[in-house]
Design a protein around this nucleic acid. Structure first.
Lengths: 331, 331
DNA sequence: TTGAAAGCGCTAACAA
DNA sequence: TTGTTAGCGCTTTCAA
């Protein structure tokens, strides 16, 4: 591996000048620049990032912390992040963490061992303790696809309250009065918000909200199936259900069919997420569609726009839309 | 940020001793170790990775190059990679590349700028030129989920020839004689292999193989739909089709239903991949199921087992299995 | 516009 | 068992 010294030697210049030209800093003539670039070609010179990071104490690395149980939508978020990062010469490092403090701390330690530019956190539910530790690293960070309401912690996410609210509102406007909510985890931020939105919509229309209209879960397919079975067995069966995720809604749909129910004739379904699943199913699933890629892009762009100044970071809700499909069509 | 010097000062020891203890190299007493660990705690010392990498010229970073158009299965491969990496104290960096030489070269340049331990390449079709450049970096590399048959290039992947062969064989054994193959890209390694396996199975049973039994594509849902429409319009319609991916097969299935065909009564379908899609559809799709997570795990494990020695790297086919589901059930 | 030289934090001979 | 010291490749004053 050739170094800056080799370039200096070959061109008869000093390492300082080589460094200046390579970083386009300070003054130099076009002639020297040309000579240096030529030598770089000839020697196939590659910068030693470790050395540069050591002296400058900074890097072009953005770390992304992803939840262990990454789902298909985090892929989309990652794609958004990576495309903007790549366009701006930033390198992405990925590190996994779970819901527990220990794994989050371990991840934070790894992050602290390098001069990372910023940290993007996708769906990792930091606890109060790890949140403090995160703060203490002094690394600019941004939560993606989740948020800490009532705090100053910056995030890029959908407005999950509005998602819950509008999904429910959509069903109410279609004439439903007994509306279920299935598969969300009410202890997670996202679930809590969606549920709050759902309840607000019901309250606004003075609709009854018996406990049994809500069957919580973990956003999984199995959760959807179980919820459907439970709804079917209970006295007061809803005529429409908000599925907490696409997987949940597919679980609801399939289990409904097992139970002999037809969608949308016997049961109306609206899903939250709007991944490709929604239009591959029969019937197609109406969904509150989130723009996950935009979330990733916006997150990176926000870092870039604020030049990685932590205090300048602004929280943003990414727009979602409702895609009407067959699962809510009037019979 | 405290450094090794601060630790030395605080403990009254030298930086060399601190380094030894921290890296568990050389000799030292338990007492000094304790003192040092205490100081590390007190000062919240974090190693400066850049400095270490600069002097050792090596790191614990494994780079993963992923195709731009990452699909859901690369998520599973990544999960496998990350879990093994994390268990062994390795950090993963991700970089995207496409099918073109330019993007691959750019990615390789980025890789060359750090002392990475190894490079894992998921579904990025290197050209002859970029393959040479890859070789010239002298970084240990391993292709995942693809291969270069007839070369020494190491890979971890399914045996796509066998996948094509056995999927077809499965349909032949079920009594089919007119079997289609849809949605694969025959110019890709994976597609070429699957097609070769498919053709071999047909040939072995002396079945006719008119061109119109094969409708190529790009493994996408749309490709499946288009293929189905084409099959339906032609004189010699197959009674069974091998879908080149889960998405293709779902496209085939949905389009078949649009065309008034019932699966499996009018048409038998077998899918390649076996992601969750296969059991969420109605009817469930029989599939040749690949173990993508195992692929990722094995790839990392192989690097570990060979201690990152490029020449010791061995290629492995990961087992796949056939999951019989409704789409191939006898009527 | 260019060069000399110091130093980033760490590791690894070599010496004690 | 521990310390001294040189140096990894780069950037950045300061001086020329």
């Amino acid at each position: 591996m050739s170094t800056i010294k080799d370039i200096a030697k070959r061109t008869g210049l000093s390492t300082a000048t080589v460094s200046r030209v390579l970083n386009q800093k300070g003054k130099y003539t076009q002639a020297t620049a040309d000579k240096i670039h030529q030598a770089v070609q000839d020697l196939d010179y590659k910068i030693n990032t470790s050395a540069r990071e050591l002296v400058t104490q900074e890097s072009n690395v953005v770390m992304v912390m992803v939840n262990h149980s990454a789902t298909n939508f985090s892929t989309q978020i990652m794609q958004g992040i990576l495309s903007v990062a790549q366009q701006n010469g930033l390198t992405i490092m990925v590190i996994y963490a779970g819901d527990d403090a220990a794994s989050q701390q371990a991840a934070l330690d790894t992050v602290s061992e390098r001069p990372v530019r910023a940290l993007l956190i996708i769906s990792v539910p930091f606890t109060e303790v790890t949140l403090m530790q995160l703060h203490d690293t002094h690394i600019p960070y941004l939560f993606v696809s989740m948020a800490y309401p009532g705090t100053e912690i910056p995030f890029i996410s959908s407005d999950d309250y509005q998602i819950g609210y509008q999904a429910t509102e959509y069903l109410i406007e279609a004439g439903h009065t007994k509306i279920g909510l299935a598969g969300i985890d009410p202890t997670s931020y996202v679930g809590e918000q969606r549920q709050a939105g759902y309840l607000a919509a019901l309250a606004e229309h003075e609709l009854a909200m018996p406990d049994e209209l809500i069957h919580t879960g973990d956003y999984s397919y199995a959760t959807g199936q179980q919820a459907m079975t439970a709804y079917h067995q209970q006295a007061d069966t809803p005529t429409a259900i908000v599925g907490g995720s696409d997987l949940v809604t597919v679980g609801l749909l399939n289990q409904a069919q097992v139970l002999g129910l037809t969608v949308p004739d016997d049961l109306t379904l609206i899903s939250i997420d709007g991944t490709e699943l929604t239009w591959m199913m029969h019937p197609n699933l109406t969904s509150v569609t989130q723009d996950f890629r935009a979330m990733g892009e916006k997150a990176m762009q926000e870092l870039l726009d604020t030049d990685f100044h932590p205090n300048a970071l602004t929280s943003t809700f990414i727009d979602f839309k409702i895609d009407a499909r067959e699962s809510t069509e009037k019979a």
